[in-house]
Design a protein around this nucleic acid. Sequence first.
DNA 1: TTTCAACACGAAAACGTTTTCGATTCTATA
DNA 2: TATAGAATCGAAAACGTTTTCGTGTTGAAA
Lengths: 340, 340
Amino acid sequence: MRRKVTLKQIAKELDVSISTVSKSLRDSPEISEDTRQKVQAFAKLYNYKPNNIALSLKNKKTKTICIIIPEIIHHFFTTVISGVEHVANEKGYNVIVCLSDESFDKEVINMEMLANGSIDGFIMSLSKETQLKKDYHHITEVINQGMPVVMFDRVTNDILCDKVIIDDFLAAYNATQYLIDKGFRKIGLISTVDYVSVGKHRTDGYCKALQSNEIPVDDKMILKIEDTNDFEKEIEQLFQTTDLDAVFAVNEIFAVTAIKIARKIGKKIPDDLSIIGFTDGIISKYSSPSITTVSQNGVKMGEKAAKMLIEKLEIEDDDFEEQYKTEVIETELIERESTK
Amino acid sequence: MRRKVTLKQIAKELDVSISTVSKSLRDSPEISEDTRQKVQAFAKLYNYKPNNIALSLKNKKTKTICIIIPEIIHHFFTTVISGVEHVANEKGYNVIVCLSDESFDKEVINMEMLANGSIDGFIMSLSKETQLKKDYHHITEVINQGMPVVMFDRVTNDILCDKVIIDDFLAAYNATQYLIDKGFRKIGLISTVDYVSVGKHRTDGYCKALQSNEIPVDDKMILKIEDTNDFEKEIEQLFQTTDLDAVFAVNEIFAVTAIKIARKIGKKIPDDLSIIGFTDGIISKYSSPSITTVSQNGVKMGEKAAKMLIEKLEIEDDDFEEQYKTEVIETELIERESTK
DNA sequence: TTTCAACACGAAAACGTTTTCGATTCTATA
DNA sequence: TATAGAATCGAAAACGTTTTCGTGTTGAAA
């Protein structure tokens, strides 16, 4: 077991000072060719690598960013991670992934823990509970300490910071309009409870589309799901109490479950019922029938968020004009087999 | 913007020494009640939190572990992350997630980057390319430096370290036997290339089960997929050149794709063809028909791996008897709709 | 020979902690 | 009152770097 070698050890071994070793390794012109080569050879032999922690302490930069997501089970979030990872690694940053499990407390703990020097900045999507409580003190706290934060997808207007979102309202509007254009009039909605920001926006877009086409919004056709554990019954009830010819679901789990329930009660997809989902995830693609869906490019969101964060991190502190941007990622409707 | 306050600043402000501040905050008996309260009050007011990096440098412990996975798209790996996160957080550790993208180089870079003080230990599953090259120098290097490594799922016998696996051979054997018990004889296999360790073991289990039942192994019924990008054609060809009544697929992507192709060429699932997958992931559950599968409890694997790693980290260096364990996680067959 | 610059290197501070040990003051006992 | 011992605090080292600045040596020009 050969422990890592330090500058001090090299210095001692070669009988020079620590400074000389450091400078030699960084090719400082102050050092003579002779000693430089001697030191470098020795360092290579013992596989010297500078200690990251010491560097972090000295530079006050850790070259590490943290992404906090509510759940890892939603494929969308894993694609965001993938995007973040990609550009972060490219720029020499590491990524710490934290899961809030939709819990306010876990979100707070994670942030407080990491904000004390461990990382340089946050990329995050709000947990359900945080959105419900509307308590963002932990985030403002971090921002006030001068640590940049980029929010994505589930964001809030109560916080001033960089954001990456899609136009949930417009995407839902277009999806609904697509169904209307196909001739459907009895269009159901399977959404989340309103305090989840994106759920609210998508619900609004759905309603607006109906209104624009002078189709009355019928609350009986709208299902807002709170508990993700046992929502199959609710969907089944929706299908049995209403006579829908199309459904817009705000995520792919809801969409695929709707398909399953519809089948169970004897409806053929898409012949008897057309379904549009949200998020072009792995389920939509591999489900049979594959699901027509609003693509929400998670990789692109992650990449963009990481770029914005790292940009903020690398501008000199001199020209710190606080300019917050909100980037809107394009969505598109991917037509597959669940609509006709 | 109120920057983080340090011990030095508090000391200066209260006109005491840094040591006194530090001791006061840690409730040292050396300090008088008076000054202790004074310091603590001041610290609370200014929301003092110790700097993690400084602590890491001092303690030579970062309280951070890294998990390296080949791909985040496989739901199995995300469940492992979830398990690791869970116990790590419980024990006060942070988790850095790295994606090797099945690339040897990325695996090496990630490990070399983080091994220099940034983290305390690794949890990892080998990339395809690493398994192909059989080059594990980066891993032995890390282990030789005294940093514990726990491997899971895709492991190798060439490295001595703690491991968490399932019995791939037995699980595949049982799955195949299950099909045989149902009366099937023409059982196809959709596997990965042999250098992926788990693919090889599952293939062996399949073959062994056939042999035990005196069913000849027919290479034409075995498809080994190398390129994950365009394997649909290969599966289609398999179905057209052979007349199978059942298929065992070594992961859920292969399984769901097999269903899709089978449907496409007019076969009904499970009436004309029964299919068993591997990994009880999100696809298997939500696919319709839902997929009978070998459950490979990723959460449990992650939890176990994290526990083993943290245990290694927290034993005193005194009693360092190198004892490596290999933990085998139970699998079970989950019967769903894709078999009859 | 003197002087000055270039050259080569080392000492020390700094990042923010914790901890050991020494120093000073106070209290109580002889 | 002298003194031992407790109580209270500060100096400094240590973790591993980088970097500024100072210092000594060398060579060449005056």
